[in-house]
Simulated scan of single mutants.
Amino acid sequence: MKTSTYLAIALAQDADIFIFDEPTWGLDPLRRDEVLDMISTLSESGKTVLYTSHIIPEVEKIADVFSIMYKGVILYTGEMKGLDDRFALYSLPLKTAIDKNDFTAAVKEANVLKILTDNPKEIARLKEIAGSTREKVNLESFFGTIVRGNKHVL
C-alpha cells in the first residue's frame, strides 16, 4: 500500500521530470503492469522519466535509452532499440585462444567463453571459430555479459 500511495502522489504532479527508483517493488503483477503503463504514458506525453530497477523485463518494456551501472560506474549507455542488431554475443569453447581486450566484454561462464562485440571485423572472426554459437542479444544477456566482463564501453 505504501508503494501505491507514493506512486499516486508522484503521478499526480505536473512535473517535467519524474524519477522512479524501483517503483513496482511490492506490487502484484497486475498492479505492476498498470504502473508501467502509466509511466510509459508520461514518457509518451513528452515528460522525462528516469527509471531505476533491477527487474530487467520492466526496463525492456518501458526504456528507450538505458544505462548499466556497476559499483557506481556507468559501464554502458545506449538505445534499447536494435540492441541485437548492434551487438553480437558468441559462446566459444572455453579453451579458445583469444585476446579478451579485442572485445567489448569477455566472460568465462560454466564451460564456455562468452564474447560480446559490436566490431564487424571481430564478429566475422568469431563466426569462423570452430564450435562458436551466436546467441540473441537481449537486455538480460547484454547486462550480464557487460557486468561480469566489467569493462567500460561508453
Rank of each mutant, 00 (worst) to 15 (best):
K61E: 06
D85I: 02
I56M: 06
G82I: 02
H54F: 13
S53H: 09
V49E: 05
M80S: 09
V73L: 14
E58V: 00
I74F: 14
V49P: 11
Y76F: 15
G82R: 05
R86P: 01
M80Q: 07
E58K: 12
A63Y: 11
G78E: 11
F66C: 10
K61P: 00
M69I: 15
D64I: 00
F66S: 07
M80F: 14
T77I: 03
L92E: 03
T48P: 04
L83Y: 06
P93R: 06
T77F: 09
L89T: 09
R86H: 06
L83M: 07
K61H: 13
V65R: 15
S67Y: 12
Y76P: 00
V59K: 05
F66W: 05
M80G: 05
I62P: 08
K71A: 12
R86V: 00
E60F: 02
D64N: 13
L83W: 02
H54R: 12
T52I: 11
E58D: 15
S91M: 10
D64P: 01
D85V: 01
D64F: 10
F87Y: 15
F87R: 06
G72Q: 08
P93M: 12
I56A: 00
L75V: 01
Y51Q: 09
T48N: 03
I55T: 06
K71S: 04
V73G: 00
I68Q: 09
Y51A: 11
P57L: 03
E58F: 07
K71G: 00
I62Q: 13
Y70V: 06
G72A: 04
G72K: 04
D85A: 11
E60A: 11
F66L: 14
E79D: 07
L75H: 11
A88T: 02
I74D: 10
I74E: 15
L92W: 07
T48Q: 11
L89R: 12
G72R: 06
S67T: 09
V59C: 07
F87G: 09
L92I: 02
T48V: 10
G82H: 04
I68S: 09
Y90A: 06
L83I: 14
K61S: 09
L50T: 01
L94E: 12
P93H: 12
K71P: 04
V73I: 15
Y51E: 05
S91I: 04
Y90E: 07
E79G: 01
M80D: 03
V59N: 11
F66A: 03
T52P: 08
E79F: 10
G72V: 06
S53G: 03
V49C: 07
Y90Q: 00
L75Y: 14
L83F: 11
H54V: 02
G82S: 04
L94R: 08
S53P: 01
I62D: 05
L50M: 13
Y70I: 05
V49A: 07
I55E: 13
F66K: 10
V65G: 03
F87E: 00
E60S: 14
A88E: 03
S67D: 07
L50Q: 07
E79W: 04
D64K: 13
G78C: 07
R86E: 05
S67H: 12
T52V: 11
Y51H: 13
T77P: 04
I55S: 06
R86C: 01
V59Q: 08
L89K: 13
M69N: 10
V73F: 11
A88H: 08
G82V: 00
D85Q: 15
M80H: 12
T48F: 10
E58N: 10
I74W: 12
K71M: 08
G78I: 10
I55F: 15
R86W: 00
L89E: 14
